[in-house]
Design a binder for these strands. Structure first.
Length: 613
DNA sequence: GCCTTGCCCA
């Protein structure tokens, strides 16, 4: 019935302008009563609608919003044989309708369609001028601009977003702080050279209402770039104009200092919190626990964990993960699983991070079957195995010498559509290198580059180490320079690899130069550094120099290990300094070291040498 | 519309 009436209304050609409103009202009425049924039964009706008609229908307040939305979706879906190209006005008319019902999320959806659709030519100012002429409500226009800004940000169309910001500033409109926060977050994610601080200052200047949320977002961005001091300055500055930091702001700065392992500054933040009467949150405890775990202060970790449980602060999933991870690093698997049970009992839903920490614990203790079972279990719980967990397994199998099984895991991972990352390649290459399979190790590192994965400091260190072990110092040094040129920071392991390479060739001058260089950079020479130097001097007959190093390292609080003692004893023995060699031997035993065959043959040799004199 | 911090791999 209604289908026939509708077609009578629409199909009639050459509609006189004055007749249009009447038609629109009739169609609206039919839609209100019968819904979309007539159009669905006869899609060709759609092609008979023109822009004017549809706009009148969509803007008719008598049409229920629900039906209106269905009608709009139908128009957009193009089910008619000769699809109607919707005009910009039609979309905007619908947006105005949505605004009247305060359906902001839906407005954004339409805007996302308009703005991200490349085919639809839709300059912002054209949209604003249409919206202004249709609906003079200045509150709406301001809101409309804000929504456009938000959508541009979400679609990462930063240029357009900036344009809208400029426009709004000129018009004296206010942007919503939330939209600006979204912009700040996107900037942070992209990590581009764009200045958060610059945008934030613009926000302040153009009168955007600033809350602790946007301030904290900016401070976090600064902290991530290593500009913690700037972050703190901003915090002080904002406090001066009434924006007070909250626990999250403090946690953000605290975390930056935890990463730096700077106890003095950590304490400074804690006393600021105390002064401001800001209570610790679970995240504060997590940060502090992470700090103490990183500097091996086990009692402090336990104390903090107990302390927070005594208070009424709920231990959350993050903190459980940190604790479980810490216990697993220390091979305390039983306690880690006890905490896992506890969090489950509390009704917290374990995620991939928690499982990852536990799986790592099992891998570290060589319990690969159990690790495998846990992987299956998590999958049964509907949690996907990610790259990190695959890497953990890979490393676990390599550690057990099961490289083939590890490579099978890699194949499974790739089959799942997970791309190996820099960790994956580094793990395989470094284990290959440890097994002296240098060519294969290099192959994996080159493959990484071919696959477009950027090598990091670890990758360079692995490769440098390989070249040093092969005695190719020219290549090692070249890679070292290349690495620094890329802004990658060598660490003590990188320096130790190089120093070991030089000492093995007797190029002691260069070795000492590198030692000085690392010290100048604030990287402390460790037991490996000294052992290489001691070994180098001993190998080339400079036993007194070696002895001086041996004493120097102990003055610095470094405890010689079996390798150091062995090098020193064999150096002394070769010179026939049998008494000193035996003296070190008993010292080594009293330190609890177990000497190996090399030590004995050296000592025996020392007697021969001494006897020969 | 309900934003900002911390958790797993070498």
């Amino acid at each position: 019935m209604s289908t026939i009436r509708l077609s009578e209304i629409i199909v009639k050609k050459s509609l006189v302008t004055s007749e249009i409103p009447g038609r629109a009202a009739e169609i609206t009425k039919i839609l209100t009563i019968s819904g979309l049924k007539p159009f669905k039964e006869n899609p060709s009706l759609l092609s008979n609608l023109n822009s004017e008609l549809t706009n009148l229908i969509l803007s008719n307040p008598h049409l229920p919003l629900h039906t209106c939305t269905l009608f709009y979706d139908l128009l957009k879906s193009n089910i008619s044989p000769t699809p109607l190209k919707l005009s910009l006005q039609t979309h905007l008319t619908f947006i105005i309708r949505l605004y009247k019902a305060e359906k902001f999320r839906e407005i954004k959806q339409v805007l996302r369609f308009l703005i991200s659709d490349g085919n639809l030519e839709c300059p912002f100012e054209k949209m604003v001028s249409f919206v202004s002429s249709e609906c003079g409500d200045s509150v709406f226009i301001e809101r409309f601009c804000d929504l456009c800004f938000g959508v541009c940000v979400e679609e990462k169309m930063f240029e357009e977003a900036n344009g809208i910001f400029d426009y709004m500033e000129n018009m004296g409109f206010n942007l919503d702080e939330r939209s600006c926060i979204l912009y700040l977050i996107e900037l942070k994610k992209c990590g581009r050279g764009y200045s958060f601080l610059g945008f934030f200052r613009r926000m302040v200047e153009s009168g955007v209402e600033i809350s602790v949320f946007s301030m904290t977002t900016v401070i976090d961005g600064l902290c991530r770039r290593g500009e913690v001091e700037k972050g703190r300055e901003l915090m002080n500055e904002m406090a001066g104009i009434g924006v007070k930091p909250n626990v999250i702001t403090y946690n953000t700065i605290l975390n930056a200092y935890v990463k730096r392992k700077d106890f003095r500054l950590i304490n400074e933040v804690l006393s600021l919190m105390q002064k401001d009467k800001v209570e610790y949150s679970a995240a504060t405890y997590t940060a502090l626990i992470e700090y103490f775990a990183s500097v091996d202060k086990h009692e402090e970790v336990e104390k903090l964990f107990d302390e927070m449980r005594e208070r009424t602060i709920e231990v959350d999933l993050h903190l459980y993960t940190s604790m479980i991870s810490w216990l697993c690093q220390r091979r305390k698997i039983k306690r880690a699983f006890a905490l896992f049970d506890e969090l489950n009992d509390k009704g917290l839903a374990p995620n991939a991070h928690v499982y990852g920490a536990l799986i790592d614990g099992l891998c570290k203790t060589g319990q690969m079957e159990a690790a495998d079972m846990l992987v299956n279990h998590m999958q049964n719980q509907g949690i996907h195995v990610n790259v990190v967990i695959f890497n953990t397994l890979l490393n676990g199998y390599c550690k057990k010498g099961m490289i083939d099984v590890a490579l099978r895991q890699l194949a499974i991972m790739e089959k799942k559509g997970l791309q190996p990352d820099v960790f994956t390649y580094n793990i395989i290459a470094s284990w290959m290198s440890k097994l002296k399979r240098h060519e294969e190790a290099k192959k994996w590192l080159f493959m990484m580059v071919e696959k477009g994965v950027n090598p990091n400091a670890f990758s360079f260190t692995t490769l440098i180490d390989i070249h040093c072990k092969e005695g190719n110092l020219v290549e090692a040094k070249r890679l070292f320079q290349q690495m620094e040129g890329r802004g990658l920071r060598p660490n003590n392991i990188t320096y130790n690899a190089l120093i070991d390479g030089y000492t093995k060739k007797g190029e002691m001058k260069d070795a000492y130069k590198l030692r000085d260089e690392m010290e100048a950079k604030g990287i402390f020479p460790d037991i490996y550094t000294y052992t290489s130097l001691v070994h180098g001097e001993c190998s080339f007959g400079k036993v007194d120099k070696a002895m001086r190093l041996f004493n120097e390292m102990q003055q610095k609080g470094l405890v010689p290990n079996v390798v150091t003692y062995t090098a020193m004893i064999s150096g002394l023995s070769k010179e026939g300094r049998s008494d000193e060699a035996f003296g070190l031997y008993s010292e080594m035993i009293s330190m609890g070291h177990t000497p190996d065959q090399r030590v004995y043959s050296s000592l025996v040799g020392s007697l021969h040498t001494a006897g020969g004199h």
